[in-house]
Design a protein around this nucleic acid. Structure first.
Length: 561
DNA sequence: GCCGTTTTCGGCCCGACTGTTTTCAGTCG
């Protein structure tokens, strides 16, 4: 709706209202159709008024939006696709449609090849060439959002490289990378430097740069060979905090903060907080928040999902940090598809300062991973006892990643499960059951008194496999009622639960377990990704099971039977 | 289309870079 209205030349604030409302709907942790069937009024959410609440209800109840259909009578719906081409916004798409009758990518390509675009007012040869290049580039693997772990591998060496520029003082990756979002579209790097031109020149000369999209005194954009985009901004040191705030985003958070500034007759931009022409803050982020009477808000919270309201009431969560984590409760060993022994994994965990480590190898149903049968598991239990006798300073816990079978039973008998400290229960097959059946399957499994932790609750693999259909609200409530826990799987391909569901679990009062699912020693360091997601989900140390010492952990793992 | 301890009308965040212009519109973040 927003794209099409914008192409039609509708009031830009009306267009923004649709975008804001769509985003709000996306960040509501509960299922919106459930909210509507419960008769809840959506206009209580920020950015959704009476009108849009009605339209959302229409979509939920009828699967259609009559206004959208009306607009599609006037202009082709496919035009919205064209605005996704870099350099094409609503105005230019409207011009292309009106003057050249371009409605699709194919039309656009043809018009560019025939040199018709350069003849339009406001367009020229360069624009036409870049449009053509963009269309043809798209047919090769279009760059989607990139997983955080991959971006780390890009960011760290690039920042080290830029740091070596003469005159560079501060340098930091901002944007969604700093907010620890699970995927990142492009990397925003911020620097302070005596002579901005020096760092810009060095930036565009980086060996991985394939294309320089733009280069200016304070901002440049490049595309790396991998297709990944990096932006570099340079500001003076007095502006570093304001710029860091601005480039960390999110956009929605920034807009909200700037609006607060406007109310106080202040102007907030990347150079500082200004009262008239006078800069009254900017060197550090804390002062920028201070000028709008807010405490420092952690980057992971800056999504305008309630953090500003919480900050105003001094009710910001004290977010869980890596130092709070006392152990990892989901790792694999050579017994199944891991690559190290129990003792090697335990020593590696101890080196990371942990007090305990739970071995959770696969159960027999996962044949590709040589899942354990009851007798294999007993053998592993014996070995864990021996390792515990040998190792001081860390306790190895006996666990299993036991499959939840299609009928909701667990893959190993209670007689062996009861010998364990904990179970990590997961769905590994039959991902395509209906939402009701999949939910019933998991809920039935939770009725087993030895069910402790639901591992990677949605089964998704970021950018690779969609989550299977489940009623998360029912699952969370069942976990609450039966004394089970939900995993926040820290593997950067999973990060499952996601931020929004993790926050919902906290609200309902279910504790989460942040585990790495490590198959190798180095995988234990994936914990940092889990922490990022947990912090995005507003989790505090108390909301996370594995911040507890060993004896508290064991008490909490005991289910009411 | 949303919103309100200045307001139910009249505002709505702010700036950089490019290309096409000859002072700025469009796009992007």
């Amino acid at each position: 709706m927003a794209d099409l209205l914008e192409i039609q030349g509708a009031n830009q604030f009306r267009v923004r209202a649709y975008r804001d409302a769509a985003r709000t709907v996306g960040s509501i942790s509960q299922n919106v159709s459930d909210l509507i069937s419960e008769g809840q009024d959506l206009s209580k959410y920020a950015g959704i008024g009476k009108d849009l609440a009605g339209k959302i209800e229409e979509i939920v109840k009828t699967g259609r939006l009559s206004l959208l259909e009306d607009i599609k009578q006037e202009i082709p719906g496919e035009l919205s696709e064209l605005t996704h081409i870099a350099g094409l916004g609503a105005k230019r798409v409207a011009a292309l449609y009106k003057q050249l009758n371009v409605t699709s990518l194919a039309d656009l390509e043809e018009a560019a090849k025939d040199h018709k675009i350069r003849q339009l007012e406001g367009f020229g040869q360069k624009t036409e060439e870049s449009i053509l290049q963009e269309i043809q580039g798209r047919q090769e693997e279009h760059a989607e959002r990139t997983k955080l772990v991959v971006v780390e591998r890009v960011a760290k060496p690039l920042i080290e490289y830029l740091k070596k520029t003469k005159g560079v003082k501060d340098i930091e990756a901002a944007g969604s990378y700093r907010r620890r979002k699970e995927t990142v579209r492009d990397l925003d790097v911020l620097a302070t430097c005596k002579k901005g031109a020096d760092v810009m020149n060095r930036f565009v000369g980086y060996e991985d740069v394939q294309k320089v999209v733009s280069k200016g005194k304070t901002r440049s954009t490049v595309i790396l060979r991998s297709g990944f985009q990096v932006d570099l901004r340079v500001v003076p040191q007095v502006s570093y905090g304001a710029a860091l705030h601005y480039f960390t985003g999110s956009k929605e958070h920034n807009i909200a903060i700037r609006k607060m500034g406007v109310k106080k007759k202040l102007k907030i931009n990347e150079y500082g907080v200004f009262k008239g022409d006078k800069r009254i803050a900017g060197r550090n982020e804390k002062d920028v928040f201070g000028k709008v009477a807010l405490p420092f808000i952690e980057p992971e919270l800056r999504e305008n999902r309630g953090e500003i309201e919480a900050a105003q009431k001094d009710k910001l969560p004290k977010l869980v940090a890596l130092d709070d984590i006392k152990g990892d409760l989901h790792v694999h060993t050579k017994y199944t598809d891991g690559h190290y022994t129990i003792q090697e994994m335990a020593e590696a965990a101890k080196k990371r300062g942990y007090k305990y480590l739970a071995i959770a190898d696969h159960s027999k149903h996962v044949t590709v991973a040589h899942g354990l049968k009851a007798k294999d598991l007993r053998k592993q239990i014996d070995e864990i006892d021996k390792v515990n006798e040998k190792l001081k300073g860390i306790t190895v816990l006996k666990g299993i990643e036991v499959d939840i079978l299609e009928d909701g039973s667990l893959d190993l008998p209670d007689s062996v499960l009861k010998e364990l400290d904990l179970t990590v229960c997961s769905v590994h097959y039959k991902f395509n059951l209906s939402k009701k059946k999949q939910t019933d399957r998991i809920i039935k499994a939770m009725n087993n008194p030895y069910f402790a932790i639901l591992a990677h609750p949605t089964g998704r693999l970021i950018n690779e496999r969609r989550p299977y259909e489940i009623d998360m609200e029912r699952i969370i409530k069942k976990a609450k009622d039966s004394g089970c826990f939900l995993e926040l799987n820290a593997h950067p391909d999973r990060l499952d639960l996601n931020d929004i569901d993790a926050k919902r679990a906290k609200e309902i009062g279910v504790k989460l377990v942040i585990s790495t699912d490590a198959h190798r020693i180095d995988d234990l360091d994936y914990m940092r990704f889990g922490l990022g997601q947990a912090r995005r989900g507003w989790l505090e140390p108390d909301d996370v099971l594995n911040t507890r010492g060993l004896s508290d952990l064991k008490k909490l793992l005991k289910r009411k039977k």
